[in-house]
Simulated assay, not measured.
Amino acid sequence: KDPADSKRRTCYALAWYEGKKDKKNKEMWCVDIIHVYSLNPEYVRSLPKTITKTTTTVNSDDTNTSITVNSDGTIIRYDRNTGNSIVYRPQDNKKASSIDVPIKNSGDFIQRFNDLRTEYIQVVQFAGKEQTFFANRIMPPVNKMLQLCREHSKLLKSNERNSCMGILDDMKQSARDKGIREMLNLAQTYLGGK
Rank of each mutant, 00 (worst) to 15 (best):
T50Q: 07
H35W: 07
K49N: 10
D32C: 01
T68W: 04
S38H: 11
S46P: 00
P48M: 02
N59R: 09
N64Q: 13
N70I: 04
I51F: 08
T52G: 04
V44S: 03
I34Y: 01
T57F: 14
P41Q: 06
I34P: 00
T55S: 12
N64W: 14
V36P: 00
N40A: 04
G73C: 06
C30V: 03
T52H: 12
N59W: 08
T57K: 03
T74R: 14
R45M: 11
V69R: 03
V69E: 07
D72V: 02
N40L: 03
E27H: 06
T50H: 02
V36M: 10
V36F: 10
Y37L: 15
S60Y: 10
W29T: 12
G73W: 11
T50M: 02
D62C: 13
S46H: 07
V69A: 03
I76D: 00
I76T: 07
T50G: 00
C30L: 09
K49A: 01
V58R: 15
K49H: 05
V31T: 13
N64K: 14
V58S: 13
D61E: 09
T56W: 13
G73T: 09
D72A: 04
L39W: 15
C30N: 12
D61W: 03
I33K: 10
V31I: 11
K26V: 01
T68I: 04
W29L: 11
N40Y: 03
I34H: 02
E27R: 12
K53R: 09
G73D: 10
G73A: 09
K49V: 04
T56G: 06
E27Y: 05
M28R: 15
N64T: 14
N70T: 11
I51Q: 13
V44Q: 03
T55F: 02
P48D: 10
E27S: 09
I75W: 02
T56F: 08
Y37D: 15
K53E: 06
T54D: 07
V31N: 08
I51Y: 06
W29M: 11
W29V: 13
S60F: 07
K53L: 06
V44H: 08
I75H: 01
G73L: 08
S38L: 11
W29Q: 14
S66M: 14
P48T: 05
I67Q: 02
D61F: 04
L39Y: 12
V69D: 00
T55P: 00
D61Y: 03
N40P: 00
E27M: 10
I76C: 04
V44Y: 05
D61T: 06
I33Q: 08
V69G: 00
T52M: 14
E27I: 11
T74Q: 12
E42T: 08
